[in-house]
Design a binder for these strands. Structure first.
Lengths: 224, 224
DNA sequence: ACAGATTCCGTACACCGTACGAGCCCCGCT
DNA sequence: AGCGGGGCTCGTACGGTGTACGGAATCTGT
């Protein structure tokens, strides 16, 4: 009884902002953002709910920190290739990260302050574009467009109930087509049927738009 | 005391799903989606909280219905012009609608079933593209890309603390530039300064990407 | 006039974020 | 050695949430 044992629970070395935020991300991955409550998170860390507030001012700050963890996971554009390959790699990485943390997309809308990892990322992307010969204005346009594409795609993809060609085919035949009578929705009906027949793979969709956007930006290098 | 007066409060003719959903949209516009609670909404309608559950199975269904109200506000692509003008009009309309109902963007991620107005809208867009000569596959690509652009832009714009050129200049000078020391963020610092000097207007950004995407899609008409 | 359906809502329960303040432990000072 | 203070932990409590349940009031058809 004389032994000093401050932490007796599952947690190993005591809390820290880092540990709190990382566990919050893990919990959100597992249960969705709705399943993330301060009490639940504290339980996961083997602590009392109010203990968390020593490391985070409030839940908003926790969510901000979680978003920045997500940004830190996105690969920075490599410096040793042409700008298109670099932007392509970072877009693909961002897509993977957002697929791993789907809750992040719904949080982006509400968080307005960038966070350090977010800023470092923007700096690297802007550097890549400027070095490739884009003007300040064109680099801004390109930055916007690429971000819009990546986040917009993730947003759209998150609200779809299929990810693979097989899942799409199943959903289309069992759910969509019955809901799309040809009299009311001739074109959607035609599309759904034709896409299933052609073995349409929604996972490929990302690259179509990405490559189209990259190609369309190329001629703008060097222009004002 | 013998007079029959069932509804004595501000509400005029009694409840209905329509009235509940419309008032919910109004409340969300006014107070944000966090300010929308069943009790609050009921109060706004001059009713008890539990009365709402006669018209809506649960809050999720209410949110679904609200999203569909938003979709119904988006202009359908006009049929009497070329496809680019039609798509441009509907994109601009969607942007306006989403700016009017910013809460809608954060809801889209979580709602997975389309809703009638959403379906009607997709049918009209697909019809426009197919009639313009896009194949089923290309129309699907174009549909995705345009939606990704519109929703992605709205998502991005919602998380920025400025809308106009003046607000951007103020924020950049008072907030961004002090946070972007030139040693750590040379390119972002340069960009912020140059954009302010050039009178950069973020409201114009929408059209750059939109027109670029439309132009890049044009040559794909008629291809497989 | 009465029966049944429709509409409304008061109460209650489990959960949420978090303000407040009491306890605990460790450290440095006298 | 004793003590005071500061960092950390957390129990309790308050006002909010979504909604299950059951009762009451009204409307409708006979």
């Amino acid at each position: 009884m004389a032994v000093s044992r401050r932490r007796q629970v599952a947690s190993d070395i005591g809390l820290s902002k880092q540990r709190v935020v990382v566990e919050a991300v893990r919990l959100a991955d597992r249960e969705g953002v709705d399943g993330l409550s301060m009490r639940r998170l504290a339980g996961e860390l083997g602590a009392g709910a109010m203990s968390l507030y020593h490391y985070v001012a409030n839940k908003e700050e926790l969510l901000d920190a979680m978003i920045d963890v997500v940004f830190a996971e996105i690969e920075l554009p490599p410096e040793d290739t042409d700008w298109q390959s670099a932007m392509r790699r970072r877009a693909v990485s961002a897509r993977q990260v957002l697929a791993r943390h789907p809750w992040a997309i719904s949080l982006m809308e509400s968080r307005t302050s960038p966070g350090p990892a977010h800023l470092r990322h923007r700096e690297a992307v802007t550097a890549c574009l400027r070095r490739a010969g884009f003007s300040v204005l064109m680099a801004t346009h390109a930055n916007w467009l690429l971000d819009v594409y990546v986040y917009g795609f993730a947003l759209q993809a998150a609200s779809l109930p299929f990810d693979t060609a097989g899942e799409f085919a199943d959903m289309a035949e069992d759910v969509f087509l019955p809901q799309l009578p040809p009299e009311e929705f001739p074109y959607l009906n035609e599309s759904a049927a034709a896409l299933v027949a052609a073995g349409y793979d929604p996972a490929e969709e990302f690259f179509f738009g990405l490559d189209l956007v990259l190609a369309a930006l190329e001629p703008l290098r060097g222009s004002a």
